[in-house]
Amino acid sequence: MQNHAECGDTMAVAEIDLKGEVCPYTFVKTKLKLEELEIGDELVALYDHAPAVENVPRSLRNEGHKILGIKEIGDHLWQVRIQKV
């Protein structure tokens, strides 16, 4: 975990690599990881399971979290940036 000092706030960025994981565990594991973080912290998650790229952000939004960005960073590899709310 790294710490960013932006605008005077200390915001932690955590990462979770969920390559090889399928639904619903992509969401379950992302959710468990978010529970470990503080409100306002950012989580960067990696998925290679295409349905997760739609399903996980939708489920996270339903729980009130913020999706900061979804990016395809390789062949069948996506990075989703989430802010814990």
């Binding site: 979770i16 619903p24 565990y25 969401f27 379950v28 594991k29 959710k31 468990l32 990881k33 529970e35 470990e36 489920s59 339903n62 729980e63």
Partner: peptide, 26 residues
Amino acid sequence: MIGGFGEEQIRRYSRHIILPEVGGKG
């Protein structure tokens, strides 16, 4: 191990964890 849960526990309790009213904390 995520949030104190082992791999088997994550699978066993996944349908609970998914519920907003339960989650890993519940």
